[in-house]
Structures are given as C-alpha cells and as structure tokens.
Simulated scan of single mutants.
Amino acid sequence: MADKYKQWSVQRLKCELAQRGAACGGRKINLIERLESYDRNKNFREDPIIIPEPLDVFWPITGFQQLRPEHRKSMPQLTYHQIEQYFLYRMAEDKQMTSDLKALEKGKDLLNGERIFACSMSSDDAHIYLSGIVGAAMKQKLSYNFKIGIDKRTGDPLNSHCECPAGKGPHGTCKHVAAVFLMVESFVEKGNLTVRKGCTDNLQSFHVPKKIYDGKPLAADRIPWKRKHTDEMLEDPRKDKLQVETMITFNNL
C-alpha cells in the first residue's frame, strides 16, 4: 500500500485524507504516513460512514412555498454530523482542501446575524428542495441565491449550489450554504426558524386605532378629530362655474 501511495500526487493524497475526515496539511511523506495509519486503524471508526450517492442534478421551478413552522413535520432529521460529512466528502469530490471546515464556522456567524433573507421549500416522493436568498457577510446590499437538495428519508444532504464563487454546484459548500443547512438543523431539532421576516410578515400596528368608537355612525363633518379640518376636506377645488353646473344638475334629478 505504501508503494501505491508514493505514486499518487499530493493533491490526490489530500483528497483521500479529506474523504476520511483526516487533516490534509504537511509534506508528501507525512500525508502517506497518515493514510497508512488510517488504513491500519480502519479509519479510526467502528462503523464506516456511508456517503450518499449524489442526486441527479434536478431543481424544480414550481411548487415552492415559503418555509413556515408547520413545515417542520414534513422535514427529515438533519444532524450536524451529516452536514459536516457532506462538506468533507463533497469538497473532496471537487478536489478542494477539505480539512478546512471554516465554511461551517462562518455559516454559524451568518445564521446568528440573521443573514438568511428567504427560504422556500418544495418536495416530491424522495427529496426535499430548498431555495432562497442569503445575504453576503460584509456587503449589506449583496445577496446570493441558493439551492439545496435533501434526502427525504434519511435527511442526508445531496446537492447544493450558491451563486457565490465558492458555492458553485452541484455540490457547492460555501458559508452561505452552510448557514442554510445549520438553520434547517435547528429548525428540525428545536423548531427555530431563523429566517429574516419581511415587512409584510409583521403586524402593522400603526393601522390599529388607539380607541375604538362604538357609538352611532357620524357624518364626516361631525367627527370630533376631523372638525378642525372639515372646511378643508369639504371644500370643492373646482371653479365656481363648474360648481354651479353640478348643483343645477343635482337639483334637476
């Protein structure tokens, strides 16, 4: 096995280590020794992690509904361990440095900062699809669209895509995608739906009167708070000739 690893490139060694959840830093000899150690100890796990097969890249364009508390019952269980393994494996598949899980850490900051602006859900017999908008971390007016696919039975993340440079799909693993996965995890486990509310989602309290009038109906010119404006409100802005013509027509009816 050692001879086999010696023939591998450094990039391939790093990808293999990343797939096993190992550190990817060091010189080539260190990477080979680390892989040999993982082989001897069966990856230091009692049960091997089964990585889900990637879902065919299909994104529905209709049938989405804004994610609401009542959708919690239809969402599969999604754990942090599943999210972490998805980031490690999918980044390895895309030949990236996978020992760096800073995307998950930065995703937590985006989630806590309420940078998930919108999230909608659609589903079929086998999959849950999520789509929406996540705001950029540093630029207030910049946002990115995301798409996520989740296995409806197991909760395993299958596909993800984000408009940002780091999140290009079909298996993008940027901090914006991480924020959504972590939001879904919290939503399924605790019922916390951390999506910023729009202006139409909040009660417009300024439309509620301070005191409800329960008396008889009054003409506009007899309403107390309008008396001082009655003359202005009832004043006809038209020319005198038009006002006279209107009065004559009204009297002839």
Rank of each mutant, 00 (worst) to 15 (best):
M1Y: 09
D3I: 10
D3N: 13
K6I: 03
Q7D: 09
V10C: 06
R12C: 01
K14T: 01
K14G: 02
C15R: 09
E16M: 10
G26C: 10
R27V: 08
Y38C: 05
R40Y: 11
N43P: 01
R45S: 13
E46V: 07
D47V: 05
P48S: 15
I49P: 02
V57A: 15
F58A: 02
W59G: 00
P60Y: 11
P60N: 09
G63Q: 10
G63H: 10
F64W: 11
Q65R: 11
Q65P: 00
L67Q: 04
R68D: 12
S74D: 15
S74V: 13
P76N: 13
T79G: 02
I83S: 03
E84S: 06
Q85Y: 00
Q85E: 06
Q85H: 04
Q85T: 02
Q85M: 02
Y86M: 01
Y86F: 12
F87P: 00
L88Q: 05
Y89A: 06
Y89I: 03
R90I: 02
A92I: 02
D94C: 06
K95I: 02
Q96C: 08
D100K: 14
K102T: 14
K102E: 14
K102H: 15
A103W: 05
G113H: 12
I116R: 05
I116E: 03
F117K: 10
A118P: 00
A118C: 10
C119N: 12
S120Q: 07
D124L: 14
D125K: 13
I128M: 15
Y129D: 04
G135W: 10
A136P: 01
F146C: 03
K147C: 01
I148W: 05
G149L: 04
I150P: 00
K152L: 07
D156T: 03
D156L: 04
L158G: 02
C162E: 01
C162D: 03
P165Q: 11
A166F: 14
G167F: 07
G167R: 03
G172D: 07
C174K: 00
C174I: 00
A178Y: 06
A179W: 08
F181W: 15
L182C: 04
M183A: 10
V184E: 02
E185C: 12
S186G: 09
V188W: 11
E189Y: 08
K190H: 11
L193H: 08
R196T: 06
K197E: 12
G198S: 15
T200F: 15
T200C: 15
Q204H: 14
S205F: 13
V208G: 04
V208K: 13
P209H: 11
K210F: 09
K211T: 02
I212S: 10
I212A: 13
L218N: 04
A220Q: 08
H229E: 08
D231N: 06
D231C: 00
L234K: 12
L234M: 14
L234I: 10
E235S: 14
E235R: 14
R238G: 02
R238L: 05
K239L: 11
L242V: 02
V244N: 06
V244C: 05
M247G: 00
M247S: 01
T249Y: 04
T249L: 07
F250C: 04
F250I: 01
